[in-house]
């Protein structure tokens, strides 16, 4: 039974079938990996580069970054504070979901882009206080529409920076390389 299957696979038609199967599987895997590296679908195609070009600071819309663990995603009220004074808001199709959200009072369901797993306890405040800038981890927002991660947030990447910033300070290195600093 198995021998007859192998014999069939060895003939030209069988080899082609094997080739097609391997190619299909490879493409599915490649596509799967590709989709994990894409920015997720957002309710509004928010153009970061436009807002950065206007000189709006990161902390204006994500004020939590300097105060606590989460940077926060702005509510429609924050968007509306500026946008209700901008004539384009009335006409732009891109901004229709924002108008809709403000009128109906339903919150905009932003999809977080930069995320760490549940077993990682990340605190923005400590990183800002240590003199890190937003773009050090999140990339240059003046170049992207929807935020994209410039790198994979994995432990090696975190730890490299932790060890570097500790420098010669042994006590700081102990604290920054301690498992319990991020995992609990």
């Amino acid at each position: 039974m198995i021998k007859s299957i192998f014999d069939w696979l060895k003939q030209p038609l069988g080899l082609i079938a094997v080739g097609i199967t391997v190619l299909t599987l490879f493409s599915i895997a490649a596509y799967g990996i590709y989709t994990t590296q894409q920015a997720p679908e957002q309710p509004i195609q928010f153009p970061h580069q436009t807002h950065v070009a206007f000189g709006i600071q990161c902390l204006y819309c994500h004020p939590g970054a300097s105060k606590g663990p989460a940077a926060g995603l702005p509510s429609q009220a924050k968007c509306w504070a500026c946008h209700n004074q901008i004539a384009k808001t009335e006409t732009s199709a891109l901004l229709a979901p924002l108008k809709e959200a403000v009128q109906s009072g339903t919150p905009i369901q932003w999809v977080p882009v930069a995320q760490v797993p549940d077993f990682v306890q990340f605190n923005h405040r400590a990183h800002i206080a240590a003199g890190k800038n937003c773009e050090d981890c999140h990339g240059d927002m003046s170049k992207v529409t929807i935020a994209q991660n410039p790198q994979v947030f994995n432990m090696g990447w975190c730890l490299n920076c932790h060890v570097e910033s500790a420098g010669e300070d042994h006590e700081k290195l102990v604290k920054l390389s301690d498992c319990g600093t991020c995992h609990y």
Binding site: D178, C179, G180, Y184
Partner: peptide, 15 residues
């Protein structure tokens, strides 16, 4: 399960 040098606690690293 490792000893935290910084806090002197026994840690359990779930991941």
């Amino acid at each position: 399960t490792v000893h935290s040098q910084a806090e002197q606690l026994n840690l359990q690293v779930y991941n």
